[in-house]
Structure formats: C-alpha cells, structure tokens
Amino acid sequence: MFVQVNQLQKRFNDHQAIKGITFHIKKGRCTALLGPNGAGKTTTLHMLAGLLSPTKGSISYNGEKDYRKHIGFMPQHPTFFNWMTPVEFLYFAGKLSGVPKQSLIEYVNNSLSFVGLTEVKNRKIGGFSGGMKQRLGLAQAILHQPELLILDEPVSALDPTGRREVLILMEKLKERMTILFSTHVLHDAEQVCDEVLMLKEGEIKWEGSLIDLKKVFSHTAIHIETIEPIKNAFDELIKPEAIHFTTDNNATILEITPSLQTNDLLTTLISRGYTIQRFEVMEDSLEDAYMKVVDI
C-alpha cells in the first residue's frame, strides 16, 4: 500500500473537523477529493502534507516517518515572497527539498517550462496575476519530482482558460506521479481523476473508482418531445408511474426496464403516429451522482 490513512481525526478546539476517516491512495492513480465547502478537504490534505498533526489516527507513507521530501504540495491560494523572482523561489524551494546541486538548474528550468513561466522567470513575483501564481504554485510542487502530488483546489480560482491549462498539465502529470487533489468543480474532476473520495462533514461518504461511482449511481432516463399530445403514447409499453410529463408534449421516462430497447420504443412511437421532435437518452453526470451521495 502506498499511502494508508487510518482512523484519522482532527479537532480544532470544540469543532471536530475530521471524524475518523480511513482510506488509501493507490500508486499511480489520480484521486479526486470531493465534498461541499467545510467538508474537511483542506484539513485532510494539510494533514497528509504534514502541515497539521492529526488529533488521532495515523498516516503511513511506505512506512516512512518524515515523508515530506517525497511529496509536492500546492495550497489553495499559493503565496510567495513577493520580492523574489520565480527562479529564486524555485532554487530556494528545491534546496529545501534536498535536490542535488548539480541537477537543480535543470529541475528549475524544467518545471518552469512545464507550467509555461519561462518568459517571466526573472520578473518579481509581486507583479504576478492570480493565474501565474497558481502556475508557479504547481511548478514548486512538482519541482523536486515528488512521488505524490497534493493539490488543494488547483482549478477553483481560475478563469476557464486557466482551468483548461491546469487540467491539461494535470493530465500530463498523471503519467509521472500519483496525484491527490481536492475540488468542488465536478466537471473538472470527471475529466482527470480515476478514483473518487467523497467527504461530507468530516466523514467519507463514498470511495472508489470513477467508473464504479457512475455504475452505482448513474441512472438513464429518456426524454421525449413530440408535436402531438403525448399523454397516451406509452400505453401498455411502460408503467405510468415511471413516466413524468412536463407538458402535454413532453415526457421523461425515469425508469427503464432492461427489456425495453430504446430503438423499439422509438419505432413503436413512430408507428403509433407520433412526430418525434426530440429523443434523448440522458446519462447521469458525476454531478448527479455527487448530489445523491452528498444528500444521503
């Protein structure tokens, strides 16, 4: 097992932020930590990054005690020394993580070009935009080529372009390292992650692969729109309880029995003389699955 978290608890004065969670991170996989605001995502990540000590429970990383040199951490809002340049900061960070002197220049240049900050590498960080700081935050996290990359809300604060860029970078990083990231933007999580960990009020609500999650919670529905009133179209075909009529011409079939083929449904409707305007098979997105898990 790569990273094993056992009965982890964190208490801030009288507030129990994490209520004993147990999970593991698989090597080489990209895990998304999902949950509403205040679920304890940042607290969990900070404990994993060694910034907070757990009140109870344990984190084991290949059995090592101080594993901080193997991880790269990017906080939610990375801030730097404004008087430094990116190159100076990365040198400073690299030395602290014990990167050998001879490879430091190479590492710094590599991570700067990876996040696309080579052109501004000698400008003062003080004048950077939020997106540039986010990218520099990613650069400092991957600088020492860690085994585990922990990203706290890497895309939440970015504009759509910046978000896409970071997601593409994460997609590339997935091949090289294990990634654990938190987010509340589910669409983004869906694009890059393999594993999902859902947290709510300090407890794990669901854990498993993205595929399994969709299998368990997803549920297909068919949306049909016709020109003629649709009221009696499904007689003897589908139970009335499974149909939800929005208007006279609109119907959503919520429950689909395996015996019912969508093609058969379509041909039957046409043969009964209905003019189909819209016929859509809808699959639940991660968002729907998330809402179901979180609302449990």
Partner: peptide, 13 residues
Amino acid sequence: QNNVLTLIMARPV
C-alpha cells in the same frame, strides 16, 4: 499571515 509558510513547512524543514 500570507501563507508562504505552508510552502516552506510542506518541505522537510
């Protein structure tokens, strides 16, 4: 206050 400490203490310091 400006959180730069998290970047330092996430390294083996």
